[in-house]
């Protein structure tokens, strides 16, 4: 009997160890990531249908160009943050039946696609998209292009501020460039070290190859980022492009912070006071024979195209 009791206790102990282990993993780590998918938060994320061309209910900037492209229509693609811009280009220049959207995505034959930065770079190199609209390519994207024998031409068509974001409950409203670099190199690991409350800093990064990750690497320069310090605990800081954060997401639970005392509003970007801004580009393969690629890019650089960019909320080239 004693032996049986001891055996049962041993088994129960092993079960208890695993239950406790998995509960603590779930409570400290998993649950935090599950919280990011709740309905309320999802409602404030980008929806492709909100910026569809040729749609009366859509928020896309509607400009009717004097000339349309009806043959050899270049396939447009690009970064999520720039989707409202290139969707507006399609709305202005393309015939209505060139774009087809069903069940939350563009069909394969649609001349407007949205595959985000990584997908768009792959597609322009592979030849399935003709012109993509993105931030500058990452090292890996350039290597992929070289591997495939593709030379990419990058034409700057506008500028956008690169911004840093925290939860709106975070007491921090401003950080210096050195402080942000210090956070991402691991020099600062608690908000109190940079003027905030006593809480760990979760310095969250984007995926390699995304537009904002490439821009962040450029911002950091020679300083090496430590991957995801304290991401499982603490209060997060992240980064993105201003338009994506304000107009596309408009989530009141996040806020942009000032950099060196300058807030990234439109005026400060236009007058150059907010110093961290980057070009975004129209990118295409140099050997793409589509005669309308250059016509399209020349139009984008014209008053009509630049007007669309400014009305969408970005700064023109």
């Amino acid at each position: 009997m004693n032996k049986l009791i001891k055996q049962i206790i041993a088994i129960l102990l092993v079960i208890a160890v695993f239950v406790l282990l998995n509960l603590s993993i779930y409570k400290t780590v998993t649950r935090r990531f599950i919280d990011t998918s709740n309905k309320k938060v999802k409602n404030n994320t980008i929806q492709l249908k909100d910026y569809l061309p040729f749609d009366d209910k859509s928020s896309v900037v509607k400009v009717n160009s004097k000339t349309k492209i009806t043959d050899d229509i270049p396939v447009l693609d690009g970064a999520t943050a720039l989707y409202p811009v290139f969707s507006a280009f399609a709305n202005a220049k393309y015939p209505k039946d060139s774009v087809s959207f069903k069940d939350g995505k563009f069909s394969e034959k649609s001349k407007l696609q949205m595959n985000n930065t990584r997908g768009a770079y792959k597609r322009v190199v592979d030849g399935t998209s003709d012109i993509i609209f993105c931030a500058q390519p990452s090292k890996e994207q350039l290597e992929y292009a070289k591997e495939k024998g593709a030379t990419l031409k990058q034409v700057p068509i506008g500028r956008e501020a690169f911004v840093f974001i925290v939860n709106s409950h975070n007491s921090i409203d401003n950080l210096s460039v050195d402080q942000i670099k210090g956070i991402y190199t691991g020099k600062y690991t608690n908000w109190k070290e940079v003027g905030g409350g006593d809480n760990a800093i979760a310095a969250v990064q984007r995926n390699a190859g995304s537009g904002s990750q490439t821009a962040m690497l450029s911002f950091m320069g020679k300083d090496k980022m430590k991957r995801d310090i304290n991401v499982f605990k603490g209060s997060a800081i992240g980064y993105s492009f201003r338009y994506y954060v304000t107009d596309m997401i408009g989530n009141k639970d996040i806020k942009m912070i000032s950099l060196n005392g300058v807030y990234p509003n439109e005026d400060n970007i236009k007058n150059g006071k907010y110093q961290v801004s980057s070009n975004f580009y129209a990118i295409y393969r140099e050997d793409n024979k589509n005669p309308n690629i250059e016509k399209m890019i020349n139009w984008i650089l014209s008053d009509e195209g630049q007007d669309i960019i400014e009305k969408t909320g970005y700064v023109g080239a």
Binding site: V41, I165, H169, N170, N199, A236, G238, N251, D253
Partner: peptide, 15 residues
């Protein structure tokens, strides 16, 4: 790996 950075920060609610 499928984390949305903005929604992760938005859902935090930590001071």
């Amino acid at each position: 790996k499928h984390l949305s950075l903005l929604t992760f920060i938005a859902s935090e609610g930590v001071k």
